[in-house]
Design a protein around this nucleic acid. Structure first.
Lengths: 345, 345
DNA sequence: AACGATCTGGCAATCGGTTGCCGAATGCAC
DNA sequence: GTGCATTCGGCAACCGATTGCCAGATCGTT
């Protein structure tokens, strides 16, 4: 900050903790505060000359808008909320990063909250968050449709990996990835496949299962659903007994964490993957290529999903620079070591 | 929300988007808005009876404070900022989770921003964030001391994994973990150890190196520092050549990500870990026990660090419930498969 | 030169809370 | 019943921006 300012002004700003206001600028530039406001946030509304003078004064004072003061009359906090089920789930990474960057680029702040996989905690977090955000992104939410709709009445809501009529969703092309994966397993000679489903309330888990049913029917395979499970490594570990009981030669887990858990449990039980059991997952998280055998998985474009979700919020707020695509996000089958030829059974 | 309200009131609230204000409550309860404000945020200031009546009215209207309106006169946004270098680094998980929960428990909202390991981006993010938060946590910041001090003049700043005189820091007991690790390697017969340092601006990297020097001196070992590197898997991969050139039989990497990269590069180069080269890291991130061989590492209490950091901010804001400990956070050596007996060289 | 259109900048109300100050009501002791 | 301290609740200013409205200045046109 410039140091030789009119003494009284400098003093006043210092007392206020170093933050200058448009009133300070107005005084320094010899104009009315409203003119400062216009010069700084309505480019062109004010004459070039005055605007320049105000800009200069603002710079001299290191001016930054007070976001709260700004939010009060406009009702816009320039903040977007992102609810996730579990921050420590690597799936979230990409979403968060994508969302954070597009938000920052548009001058918005991203607030992240965690529901810990609990519908109640999520509902509470949502209502805590709602008053202070302009829009809300629910990633893999556990909320009931009806609740989501109620929230969507008050503020723009965007869903990731969940479809609810009347609410905008950012969705992956589930069928494509699943049918690639099932075809891959069929090629390897598997005739009986188990699906380890995720939480009951997970829309995307059910969706994957339905896509699997379709694919299996087309290819004449037997499939069974085992579950529900918590979508964690432990959830996958605990599924081993029921997987064995099913006699399936290949398992598709709801996500990579569960697949990793199942691989670990299999190793512990002396079951060789993939010779005795093929295992695949979804998401291609960090860690999937580290584990041995490396995990065959269906990769989703998480970062892009985060970017789009924010883009959709901005669109709903009328603050978007360019239209955001509605196409489902392509998914890719990543074949690694955890799937192999079916054991003769 | 209660449905049979005085028509005019209901209408007004609906027009405003369903959010009730203290003025609505005041009208419904037949008191002055200031009384509502006191009843709801200064328990005891108002008579039991009136307070109860106001509470009831507030419930009927589903009242929630408008955080922006509240923040304006008080200057408190009830928001805490958390700057991290890289969201996709699993180290961050624990910190974020710990921070988010204690923040939420205290009625604060956590805002996360990413600097992408760049000092400039970080400086910009900090100044963007600063006006809207009550306090700031800088986790593994890349900012210069002097800049940190300038920020700390305006708002409470807490550092994680960094020490700057005059600024509160949450620090691990570096020496303990490092000396355990070095002793472990010495026990295995290693006489020459390399340290893969992290970014130049990383205080904690230098700190680990210094602790290593101490430990090595005590035990009469040879140590060399190789670096700096970007603290990522790729950073670790790229270090292999220089590691080999150093003829060290064991490597301590600045963090697990780099250690994992080095293990991968070694495998690709046909170097057997741990028989030909022992590798260890820091942090015990997700993935460290998945890789083969599983990584020997020094575990830090990240979640606790996040909790403490928020606790310290609350303390500085005079909003703490109980004092937060200042002890360094204990670190634990986790021995896994990536370290073994030194190869005869 | 007169006139209407467009620009520019000021005035003042407003967003939804908080809080210092004050007077009225209440409580208590005597 | 009086005196005094305390409790309770209202009034109004204030936080820092935004914005509708308006008047004066400036411009181009005929």
């Amino acid at each position: 900050m410039d140091d030789d300012l009119p003494g009284e002004l400098a003093e006043r700003i210092r007392r206020r903790g170093g933050a200058a206001t448009i009133y300070d600028i107005a005084e320094l530039a010899g104009v009315n505060p409203s003119t400062v406001s216009r010069a700084l946030s309505k480019p062109g509304r004010i004459s070039k000359k005055t605007e320049e003078r105000i800009r200069l004064a603002a710079d001299r004072l290191d001016f930054q808008f007070n976001p709260m003061a700004r939010a009060l009359p406009t009702g816009r906090s320039h903040t977007i909320g992102l609810m996730v089920a579990d921050i420590t789930n690597p799936v979230i990474f990409g979403i968060v990063r994508g969302a954070e960057h597009t938000a920052a680029a548009a001058g918005y702040t991203l607030v992240i909250a965690e529901s810990q996989e609990s519908g109640e905690a999520e509902a509470e977090a949502v209502s805590r968050l709602l008053p202070s955000v302009d829009g809300l992104i629910l990633a893999t939410t556990r909320l009931a449709d009806e609740r989501i709709l109620r929230v969507a009445e008050r503020k723009p809501v965007i869903l990731i990996n969940r479809q609810v009529d009347g609410v905008v969703g950012v969705l992956p092309a589930v069928e494509q990835g699943v049918s690639d994966l099932v075809a891959h397993l069929a090629d390897l000679g598997h005739r009986s496949i188990a699906y380890l489903s995720g939480p009951e309330t997970s829309w995307i888990s059910r969706r994957r299962w339905e896509a699997m049913l379709d694919a299996a029917e087309r290819l004449g395979l037997a499939v069974v659903e085992i579950g529900p499970h918590t979508p964690t490594i432990d959830g996958g570990r605990e599924a081993l007994r029921r997987v064995q009981a099913s006699r399936a030669t290949a398992v598709i887990a709801f996500n990579d964490l569960m697949a990793i858990g199942l691989i670990q449990a299999s190793a512990a039980a002396g079951i060789h993957v993939p010779d005795e059991l093929s295992i695949a997952g979804f998401d291609d998280i960090f860690g999937s290529e580290l584990i041995v055998p490396a995990l065959t998985t269906v990769r989703a474009q998480l970062q892009l999903a985060g970017e789009r979700a924010v883009g959709k919020v901005l669109e709903a707020l009328g603050d978007a620079t360019e239209p955001v695509s509605d196409d489902p996000l392509a998914t890719t089958l990543v074949v690694r070591g955890s799937t192999g030829r079916a054991a003769r059974s």
